[in-house]
């Protein structure tokens, strides 16, 4: 069953220097109980895409296209309807847990506020019963309910964020670089936690990361994003075995090869979103660039079963 269906999504920011196109005609699908890994360098628009799903972008952003979720099109839905979805049907966890909890509020109040926002009549005992349940699920001792965020470590704060995301058993969880600011051991704990919760709660997860290793381990489907475009999409196993897009190849090569002990990197810099290169934005860095690549952005084709790619190497 398709949980989330994004079609032709565009997001652009108004800025003094002109519009910045952060997401350009992106198509994505997430099935229930499935993890989709979205990978790309920083500044490629992957965080914007994540926030666009919950429609919490700043006022300077314009969104077009369609995001079908929970029987609604989130692009055209009104604010009150969106608010009912946020934190209830779909939750978002962020990269930097250190600054995501209100420093002046105890953990208890964070949960109470969330539950009351969606169920104004909820009584406190019931709300706390649910809070203890999710806190136990993320292994935070419920007796620390009355402490303030600064009394917890980064990993614990991220667990609290996850617990907040789980209170209403959402069907979709957007995890935006959930472990980037945490150390490796905590990272593994958090991701295993997310994985077990995903199975237990039957959630679809959009895992946004720059780390291909995490995708290989935790995602079933993946999409590669470059300069606002989805360059390639497909099952993780297939993409790793046979990357189609030259950018994907470059990304996979830039992971250190333990046999040859060589580290390759993609030459050049990611493009400036204010003035992206013409045609395929990857062509200045692409080893297989052809004259046609500088013209128009390549059409998305389906060269293999379940796989799509936007590259002139794979004409329809």
């Amino acid at each position: 069953m398709t949980l989330l269906d994004i079609e032709g999504l565009n997001v652009s920011y108004a800025s003094r220097a002109g519009p910045i196109r952060a997401v350009i005609s992106a198509d994505l699908k997430i099935e229930a109980g499935q993890t989709l890994g979205l990978v790309g360098e920083s500044g490629c628009g992957k965080s914007t895409l994540g926030k666009a799903i919950l429609r919490i972008l700043p006022d300077t952003a314009t969104v077009t296209g369609s995001i079908r979720f929970a029987g609604l099109d989130l692009v055209t839905a009104e604010e009150p309807a969106l608010r009912k979805i946020r934190g209830r049907n779909a939750s978002l966890i962020f990269q930097d847990p250190m600054t995501r909890l209100d420093p002046l509020m105890t953990v208890r109040h964070h949960f109470l506020e969330l539950i009351r926002a969606h169920e104004p009549d909820a009584d406190e005992d019931d709300a706390m019963k649910r809070t203890r349940r999710v806190l136990t699920a993320v292994r935070i001792p419920p007796d620390r309910l009355d402490q303030f965020p600064h009394e917890f470590s980064g990993g614990m704060r991220q667990r609290i964020m996850i617990a907040l995301a789980l209170v209403f058993n959402p069907t979709l969880l957007v995890a935006d670089e959930p472990t980037t600011s945490l150390d490796v051991i905590v990272e593994a704990q958090i991701l295993q936690l997310l994985d077990s919760i995903k199975n237990e709660f039957e959630m679809g997860v959009l895992l946004i990361t720059h780390n291909l290793g995490l995708i290989a381990e935790y995602a079933e489907e993946m999409a590669v994003m470059y300069a606002g475009h989805i360059a390639e999409r497909g099952p993780v196993r297939d993409v790793f075995k046979e990357p189609l897009h030259p950018y994907t190849k470059g990304l996979l090569d830039s992971v250190i090869d333990l046999e040859t002990r060589e580290l390759h990197s993609i030459p050049g810099q990611p493009p400036d979103l204010l003035q992206p290169p013409s045609g395929c934005p990857f062509h200045p860095r692409c080893p297989s660039a052809m004259p046609v690549c500088t013209g128009a952005f390549p059409p998305t084709t389906r060269p293999r079963r379940d796989r799509t790619v936007a590259c002139y190497l794979y004409p329809g």
Binding site: L54, I85, R86, R88, F94, L101, P103, E113
Partner: peptide
């Protein structure tokens, strides 16, 4: 602030 964005993402009403 980040916690303001996070609160919005949890569906807290703008006035709150």
């Amino acid at each position: 602030a980040d916690y303001v964005e996070a609160a919005r993402a949890r569906g807290i009403r703008p006035l709150d």
